[in-house]
Amino acid sequence: MKVLLDIQALKTPRGIVATIVVLLCGLMPIIAPAIGESFYVDVFARTMIWAIAAVSLNLIMGYGGMISFGHAAFFGIGAYTIGILAFHGVTSAWVQWPVALILSALVGLVFGAISLRTKGVYFIMITLALAQMLYFLSVSAQRYGSDDGLTINDRSDFGIGFFNLDDDLTLYYLIFAVLLLCVYVSWRIVNSPFGMVVRGAKSNDNRMQALGYPTTRYKLTAFVIAGVMCGMAGVLDANLEEFVSPDALNWPRSGEMIFMVVLGGMGSLFGPVTGAVVFWLLQDFLANWRGFIGDHWAIIFGPFLILVVLFARGGIHGLVDRLFSRKGGAQ
């Protein structure tokens, strides 16, 4: 059993990796200026937002076996809600944020109810199709910038003097706090009676039904929770970038989320966070390389992802477990 806040758990190899990642995120506003690379604060803010999205996807994909290829839809809904409300002059966070999260939940309910009628590759295709519907809707919304996107002039306003998101550092630590909260909430959910049912349904849906669980209801609820969490990531992203475009909910974004989850370790609580950090840092590192590699960084990045998928089952966290565990793993 994973126990996040247990000191013993932090001494395990994956606990150490998680601790390093948390420290890196938490201290980046100090580290980055110290090494003269201040832009890393921005990189990490963005990375943490994607980590939130990946954590939410992991909840249904890693623990529920629901491989959604349309998770970016929720990210887009969160971001566009902020953008569109701000466009119409509504900047109060107390209005914007609940609206964004409720919309995410409603869309999650509808998308989930439709896609959970199917399994396997059909589930993947339907989630993709539903998300692309929203993408084309955003492209066709000329009033809100269509392809060019929508610039957001004002960040969400909480109306609290000392808590002002216009201050980049405040926003940074808000993102950091939301990320930790999402991991904590996931941890509670995964080990709760509800989480046991969702994991059981992933392991053996027929048996769960034979035991008396109407599994679809539980999976749908998990789908909605993950949608709300990912909507939250979109809300934060709109505030950070002060911009939202249809790219936010296009399918490559959903694919990247899946990659982050697989890279970090599907079904491990902190894995997606590690996955997001490595995903963005490596991409950033390769793209800034001078010469051939910098120009064609995807030539390195692509095979790297393939190798991780092929040889590191359980992602980085699984790999770390195997490398440093004296017992030699589960089997």
């Binding site: 059993m1 509670r188 959910i189 080990n191 709760s192 009676p193 509800f194 989480g195 046991m196 049912v197 059981g200 769960m208 035991l211 008396g212 669980y213 539980y218 609820t221």
Partner: peptide, 18 residues
């Protein structure tokens, strides 16, 4: 899991089963 199935619904999200 088999026992939990007969203890009412499982929409309980917080307390660990352990």
């Amino acid at each position: 899991l088999a026992i939990q199935a007969h203890r009412g619904h499982s929409f309980r999200f917080w307390r660990p089963v352990v």
